[in-house]
């Protein structure tokens, strides 16, 4: 028989350094990681043996995660749809009826000379009518009119420095003073409102997400609690044999980890399915609006956040349950 292995740190004479180094034999460190890996795999094995119960718990977590994740993706898409316009803060100057083309051109030239104006585009009444006919689908209705009802438009594109709301207001005030201008309108208004709504939506997703995270914590905590109670005898025996709390905690933490991960993967699939179902009607709709927009899926970042928060919630939920219930189980 080999001599008993000494588990306590042997007070080896070591004068070279003042701090006593934690000397662990390499074999034990290896064994430690091997053990972690083993617990990781075996806790998945335990879940695998009760597929239905595992699926139920994972599904609850998955649905709870899929809700905010899906909304997030939806908002991302709305944002993507509107970012195209966000940078192009422009002003439309509707010219009074009856102003001659020559005067309008002169006005455009004058505007181009202004500070803060990048470009001025002239849309004649005919061009406006053509565009309207093409985009609106009311071509036949227009044909029945004797006269072109549309005004000429000067589209003013401010320089990027002048795109600030305050300066835009200033510019708006100035162009409204111009005689030929019937109406000056900031095209940004509704984009800004939309982005305000998106901000609100994001906040809503965050609130919903945190509320559902709490629900996930409770679900995982309760599941782990039941697992702990059902393995009470085993815990008592391992404690009697000299298991540390960390050792006993480990399989439960990994179980929580798996629940979180499985739930997150399910959520990912649920969001994917929902997007898949939506993408066809969305692209049909966007085609009708003459847009190239197509529904974006879960990007890498969102996927990472989804999986990460699933795992985090799984670990935290089981940690809380284990901390509360393991203490109560002592050999007697």
């Amino acid at each position: 028989m080999s001599p008993r292995r000494e588990r306590r740190k042997s007070p080896r004479p070591n004068n070279s350094t003042n701090t006593p180094a934690r000397q662990k034999p390499r074999g034990k460190v290896n064994a430690y990681f091997t053990h972690h890996l083993w617990v990781l795999v075996s806790s998945l094995g335990v879940l695998w043996r009760t597929p239905f119960a595992t699926f139920m718990t994972a599904a609850v977590i998955g649905i709870a995660l899929a809700l905010p994740a899906g909304l997030h993706v939806l908002l991302q898409n709305v944002q993507k749809l509107s970012t195209g316009w966000e940078g192009t803060a422009q002003m439309s100057l509707f010219i009074k009826q009856g102003v001659s083309e020559k005067r309008i051109q002169k006005l455009a030239k004058k505007l181009r000379g202004w500070d803060g104006v990048e470009e001025v585009r002239y849309i004649s009444r005919e061009q406006a009518l053509e565009e309207f006919r093409k985009l609106s689908g009311f071509g036949d209705a227009l044909d029945s009119l004797n006269e072109n009802p549309l005004p000429a438009v000067l589209v003013v594109q401010p320089t990027s420095e002048a795109s600030e709301p305050a300066q835009m207001e200033l510019l708006l005030g100035k162009v409204r003073e111009l005689k030929p201008v019937d109406l000056a309108q900031l095209d940004m208004e509704w984009v800004r409102r939309l982005s305000g709504i998106i901000e609100l939506g994001k906040r809503g997703v965050l609130l919903l997400g945190s509320l559902l995270s709490l629900a996930i914590l409770l679900v995982i905590g309760n599941t782990i609690r039941l697992t702990i109670l059902s393995r009470r005898d085993e815990i008592v025996v391992t404690k009697l044999i000299g298991a540390t709390n960390a050792f006993i905690r480990r399989p439960f933490l990994y179980t929580g980890f798996w629940y979180g991960l499985l739930g997150a993967v399910l959520a990912w699939m649920l969001v994917g399915i929902r997007l898949g179902l939506l993408s066809e009607p969305v692209s049909r709709l966007s085609f009708l609006y003459n847009s190239q927009f197509s529904l974006g899926g879960l990007d890498l970042e969102t996927t990472a956040i989804l999986l990460g928060s699933g795992i985090f919630l799984g670990l935290l939920g089981s940690w809380l349950a284990v901390g509360k219930h393991l203490q109560a189980i002592e050999p007697s």
């Binding site: 034990k28 290896n30 430690y32 053990h35 005898d233 391992t238 009697l240 044999i241």
Partner: peptide, 24 residues
Amino acid sequence: HNLLFDRTVYDNVALPLIIAGYHQ
């Protein structure tokens, strides 16, 4: 006896060694 009935004889006997962190 206090054996763990969901594990083999081997796993039962190995438990104290695994707790103590012995190599496989």
